[in-house]
Amino acid sequence: MARHTQMLSDIIKGVSDVSVNCFNWSFHDVEEEGWSSVRIKSLSFFFFLFTPASLQTHTTSLNLLISATDNMVFSVRLRILLGVILLSCIQSAMNENVDINTLSRIQRFFHFNYFNGDQYAVAINVPKQQCQSEFYPNTRNFLIDDRSEEVKPHTGKNMSVYTGKQLIAAGVDKIDDKHSEYLLMYPLNNSHLTNLLNTKKDGCVVLYTFLSPCIARCLNNNISPRRDIIRGLDQLGAYQGIKAFVFTHIYYADKTNPNLRHELKKIADRVPLYYCNENGCILCGQPGSNVPVIDECLRDP
């Protein structure tokens, strides 16, 4: 059985897109002693450290592992178990969300360093560890190349988009009537956001906007010329690392809009959506959920 375990280890290590420390098992020979004698001494879910190109890559990896076990003396049930565990590892990594307490600290960092008195939006792509629990951002350990004095002038009205190493930022273009989120996301596939996403494929991307995207234009893909951000949200949603879309206030004209919940769901269906203020952050909704955007995200004191 040791030979089979080594073969499995070699197969897993040979999958180019996956770094694994997921299996630490000890088996008795299934064929000789039966299913009940298989003992999993320890199953250490350090899960996978992915640099995935796509889910299709991981599906290929799963098929490779399962087909390879066909040549071993494992029972059908054991091969199914291996497949389920591998798929579980993959799904856990791909569905990882930002730590909500850390996100609250990041939002406060944005507001303290980049707020210029009116609507603005920023997006970051940082190492995923900076979006996990117990990270406390400050100017010595977070966005150290995107200083407040360099970024803040760009978050005012009618200023150019700031493009840094880990951060992009924009205010509102009153001259050409373009909102800050749109300025970051377009032109599609060649935008500031596109370039930011490409800097780190497995990091943490947070797009923060002071005001929620407006319903009449930003979330409306039925007007011409198109000035909505729907396709930009699709691009953000396709990012393979941790991702979040965050706002602090409801856009002024939308506070009493009866369709507000439905319109914000357009964001949540594509990217995990959070409402953050001085009291902390709330998950409003996320892709794959049929739950409507929660009431707490519709109230703007």
Results as ranks from 00 to 15, higher is better:
residue 208 Y to D: 00
residue 290 N to W: 12
residue 76 V to Y: 14
residue 60 T to R: 02
residue 19 S to D: 10
residue 188 L to N: 05
residue 62 L to V: 12
residue 190 N to H: 09
residue 253 A to N: 13
residue 63 N to K: 09
residue 272 P to C: 11
residue 174 K to T: 12
residue 46 F to Y: 10
residue 49 L to G: 13
residue 112 F to E: 09
residue 124 I to F: 03
residue 107 Q to C: 03
residue 56 Q to W: 15
residue 78 L to M: 15
residue 23 F to Q: 07
residue 92 S to A: 14
residue 178 K to A: 01
residue 177 D to F: 12
residue 162 Y to L: 01
residue 191 S to H: 04
residue 300 D to K: 13
residue 136 Y to W: 11
residue 75 S to E: 02
residue 19 S to C: 09
residue 17 D to P: 06
residue 244 A to G: 07
residue 141 N to D: 07
residue 53 A to I: 01
residue 292 P to R: 10
residue 232 G to H: 13
residue 219 L to E: 06
residue 143 L to H: 01
residue 128 K to R: 15
residue 218 C to K: 08
residue 266 K to D: 03
residue 37 S to V: 04
residue 164 G to N: 08
residue 73 V to N: 14
residue 188 L to S: 09
residue 69 T to Q: 02
residue 228 D to Q: 10
residue 11 I to K: 12
residue 160 S to P: 07
residue 147 R to D: 04
residue 112 F to W: 00
residue 82 L to S: 00
residue 225 P to R: 05
residue 217 R to E: 14
residue 188 L to F: 14
residue 16 S to L: 02
residue 251 Y to K: 12
residue 35 W to D: 10
residue 278 E to R: 13
residue 184 L to Y: 04
residue 223 I to K: 12
residue 86 L to G: 01
residue 171 G to A: 06
residue 168 I to S: 03
residue 145 D to R: 13
residue 175 I to G: 04
residue 210 F to W: 15
residue 101 N to W: 04
residue 147 R to L: 09
residue 22 C to Y: 13
residue 291 V to R: 14
residue 175 I to A: 08
residue 227 R to V: 06
residue 213 P to E: 01
residue 298 L to R: 03
residue 261 R to F: 07
residue 262 H to A: 13
residue 269 D to W: 11
residue 147 R to M: 10
residue 298 L to V: 03
residue 248 T to M: 11
residue 32 E to C: 04
residue 264 L to K: 06
residue 94 M to W: 04
residue 136 Y to I: 07
residue 60 T to N: 11
residue 41 K to L: 09
residue 184 L to D: 03
residue 247 F to H: 03
residue 188 L to R: 01
residue 47 F to L: 14
residue 189 N to A: 12
residue 198 N to P: 01
residue 190 N to E: 13
residue 171 G to P: 08
residue 210 F to H: 15
residue 64 L to C: 05
residue 116 N to I: 00
residue 3 R to S: 12
residue 139 T to L: 07
residue 126 V to P: 03
residue 164 G to I: 05
residue 106 I to S: 06
residue 140 R to D: 09
residue 70 D to P: 03
residue 138 N to Y: 00
residue 185 M to Y: 02
residue 62 L to C: 10
residue 114 Y to E: 00
residue 144 I to H: 08
residue 56 Q to V: 12
residue 230 I to R: 07
residue 117 G to I: 06
